[in-house]
Amino acid sequence: MENKKQSIQELVDIIATQTNFTKKNSEEFLKEFVHVLQEYLEKDGFVKVKGLGTFKLVKNEERKSVNVTTGEAIIIPAHNKVSFIPDNAIKEAVNKPYAHLETITVDDDTKNSTIDAQPDNTVREEKSIQDEAKNNSIPNNTVIQQEEPSNNSKKTKKNKKKNPVAIVILLLLFHVAMAVSFYFYKTEIVSFFQRAVTIEENNLPQATIIDNQLSPVSIVADTVVVVETDSMPDTTNIQQPDEIIATYTPELAQNAPIKEYITVNEGSRLTWIAYKAYGHKAFWVYIYDANRNQLKTPNDVKIGMELAIPELDASLVNPNDENCVIKALELAEKYK
């Protein structure tokens, strides 16, 4: 999967060109750096390097295991290991090719047809993302493409417990029907123009009416097509969240149904409660809005207080969505 392995030597070259130090000095520095890293890991148990991450010495307790070849029970003795937690800057830099991906909410309440269509759409979406990733020279495409169909079938199984073969056939039929309807649609427009030149602005409903008169195949196909466009993800998933985020007012949080009540303990603050309730600290503003009746200022939280946690739209309090977080932070600025 990886293109190349960089050793200390190559790092030294880069460092020497970036700074005014000679290669010899840079190498000395890097070796000493690794040395100090190891020494203080053993001494303190942790080393934090700004911009890179934190190294920690973690103890693994002894545990039982089985020898794979002989089937014999063995005990793995307790040992230490180094855990590395990358710094946020590194994390983001590494994940850049996938940074534009967001967590997608799957609706369970929608009609069966949309459930059928949605996994299909997400797979297609992922595939186009894969193509993008390919351009960015990100390796390992085959693995995901193999994975996705399995995910897909798992999901449909969970949803409806239907025979997977039937679903595959359904999908195939669906695609064939779409192709057929498209063909009819095209030819119909042409003949329509030939018959009635006066009506030049020919739009979709008219074309489908003619389709319906002509053949039963296209009737079926056309209705399916309509369903499909209804459940396209870009209308349901992408535009709406922006609107919700843009039109947020404190009243929304105040009038929202209450998910739960959290009693304030010693040491808990709005940010911590928001983190527990929504998965991100920045969303404290919504809890504050919902509890304006007891809280004059955001710092007014007292031990024993019962705070209402509003049930908000997932697109408003999605901890993985940058827009949500930015919006919440903007609100927070206002309240300060």
Binding site: P86, Y98, V106, T122
Partner: peptide, 13 residues
């Protein structure tokens, strides 16, 4: 609520 978490790249040591 079911959510699809996108794939990501990480550094391991």
């Amino acid at each position: 609520v079911r959510q699809i978490v996108p794939p990501k790249l990480t550094v391991i040591f």
